[in-house]
Design a protein around this nucleic acid. Sequence first.
DNA 1: AATGTATCTAAGCATTCGCTTAGTTTATGG
DNA 2: CCATAAACTAAGCGAATGCTTAGATACATT
Lengths: 189, 189
Amino acid sequence: MARAKQYNEQEVIEKAMSLFWRNGYESTSVRMLEKEMGINQFSIYASFGSKHGVFLESLKCYKRKNASVFEKLQNGTEGVSDIKAFFYDSVEMPTKIGEFDNKGCLLTNTYNEFANNEDQLIQLQMTEFMDHLKAVFVQKLAVNSSKDEATIAKQANYLVLAKHGLAAASRVNNKQEIEDYIELTFQNI
Amino acid sequence: MARAKQYNEQEVIEKAMSLFWRNGYESTSVRMLEKEMGINQFSIYASFGSKHGVFLESLKCYKRKNASVFEKLQNGTEGVSDIKAFFYDSVEMPTKIGEFDNKGCLLTNTYNEFANNEDQLIQLQMTEFMDHLKAVFVQKLAVNSSKDEATIAKQANYLVLAKHGLAAASRVNNKQEIEDYIELTFQNI
DNA sequence: AATGTATCTAAGCATTCGCTTAGTTTATGG
DNA sequence: CCATAAACTAAGCGAATGCTTAGATACATT
């Protein structure tokens, strides 16, 4: 054996995630990552291969942080109420994990930033996330309900876009506006 | 007098706007603008001062293109129905003006890209746009209605965020999803 | 036609980008 | 206690960024 790593890869990725979340992918430079992660460029490339590699690990890290919110949604038994709670949980999630300056959703931000991008790895991560969300909504909408399939499909489409819009809006809108939005979104579901 | 300009500033700004709309601000380089606008960097800087200047003119250009959609909303007498028509018009606007590859709304894209940015000029343009939109919604919601002020305020908040989400979603979602979204959005009003 | 001036071309500026590499430090196995 | 190998530091790579400038070109006025 030789010299051991002076840093913990999980710890530095959390810092990278926080930075990407604040600035997006393109606006975050490797020099900024150096400072935030507290390690040299050499170490970044030794551990993660490229800036792109750091970003993919950051997305994974975000998903792990987000897992509890998602699990609560999936384990719920209340149907639509669980989805509504999920909307509120999603907005509050950043402050709950100590990211007071970060708003919105890193995945949604990434979805928007890479909307016109041909990056296949990122696109895959994004469509997976969206499809999964839609499937869970469909399942929740069917709980204790006599809705037909077509109605459920429409409402799932609606809620996925509403969640997308909420994540975008929560970066710039205040608490009252957010609450009005969520309450009215679920008024007729 | 001396040599005359070989290009029309309005025409080249339209091309710049189209490019910014496709790629966003940061991802559009001055070299790309050169090619798209069909003029040299010297001319770009002579006419617009900076890349930032080209962008601000592009935003103005977009607003002019968008004016008819907005006027139709303001001149309408049907209240909420006018807002709903405005949502559909906004989605169809890009194809109507020949921007078949462009989706979403340049102003909303900019709002998202500059959400964490300290650029005051851009921020001003954006908040003006959003405040104006909200005011028009409030006015429309009061037409032929017995709603109290608080309800109108809530619904206006809801619709502004819904419009924001729609613009974000229309970049990546298909026609059916968009339609489901708009229809269900207005079931709640 | 000559002149002056604004517009054009194209080369080049400093800076930053993602990434690499030469050379030093550090901890461990023999 | 020294040789070895991995992790470190920091300088530097080519390419791209926004922007500038020297010099050629074209056109209205004299």
